[in-house]
Each structure stands twice: as structure tokens, then as C-alpha cells.
């Protein structure tokens, strides 16, 4: 198992973990965090798989950087919306989805 593949598999695991959290949790903050974990998993896969040939592939780096920017802005947006929702309704969950855990 090369290092690249290891990273990739870790990335997949992270993604799955994030996905589980994203679906399982009702609290919006947890879900946003889960989203970030999923994103990180994706990036790991991208970078890890690209290392197969041995030499460094610059393209995924560029992509990941872009991806991080997107993810950050999305996170920020989500947080603002969540905050606003809390101000308006006093809840941090979407209506109809209660916090169970």
C-alpha cells in the first residue's frame, strides 16, 4: 500500500464519517462541521490518489486550494444562516428534526 492510497482510503473513511454525521445529527452546527469533515475527506482522496505515479501532480493541489476556498465560503454562509435562524426561531435545528443524541 502506497502512501497515496493510504491517504485516499483515510479520505474515504473521513468522508463516510462526515456523511454519517451529516445525516445523523439534527443540530445545524454539527451538520456544518460534518460537512467540513466530508470536504476534507474529499480533498484527501483527491491529493492521495493523484500521487500514484510517484511524482507530484500539481493539478490536485490547485484544485484542493480552490475547493477549500469554496468550502470555507459555504461554511461561513451556512453559519450566518444558522445564526439568523436561531435569532428568528430560537432553534438551531430545522423544523421537524429534533435533536436526539
Amino acid at each position: 500500500m502506497t502512501g497515496g492510497l493510504f491517504y485516499a482510503i483515510t479520505g474515504v473513511l473521513l468522508f463516510c464519517l462526515g456523511l454519517y454525521g451529516f445525516i445523523q445529527h439534527a443540530h445545524l452546527l454539527r451538520r456544518i462541521l460534518a460537512f467540513n469533515i466530508m470536504g476534507s475527506g474529499c480533498f484527501l482522496v483527491l491529493v492521495g490518489l493523484a500521487q500514484r505515479g510517484g511524482q507530484v501532480d500539481p493539478v490536485p493541489h490547485a484544485l484542493v486550494l480552490t475547493g477549500i476556498v469554496v468550502a470555507v465560503s459555504a461554511t461561513a454562509f451556512a453559519l450566518i444562516l444558522m445564526r439568523q435562524l436561531y435569532v428568528e426561531s430560537g432553534h438551531c435545528t430545522l423544523p421537524g428534526e429534533d435533536e436526539e443524541s
Binding site: 466530508m38 470536504g39 474529499c42 483527491l46 490518489l49 459555504a74
Partner: peptide
């Protein structure tokens, strides 16, 4: 909006993982 955002993000990430696999 939030529901929409979460769905959109989930969709994007699933897509992104696919992209990563394709690239790999």
C-alpha cells in the same frame, strides 16, 4: 434556505468525491 443549502452541499460533496476518484 438552510435545508436547501445542506442538500446542495451534500450533493456537491458527493459529486466532488466522484471527481476525486475520476482524477485518481
Amino acid at each position: 434556505a438552510l435545508r436547501y443549502l445542506l442538500a446542495a452541499l451534500l450533493g456537491s460533496l458527493l459529486y466532488l468525491l466522484g471527481v476525486a476518484l475520476v482524477y485518481g
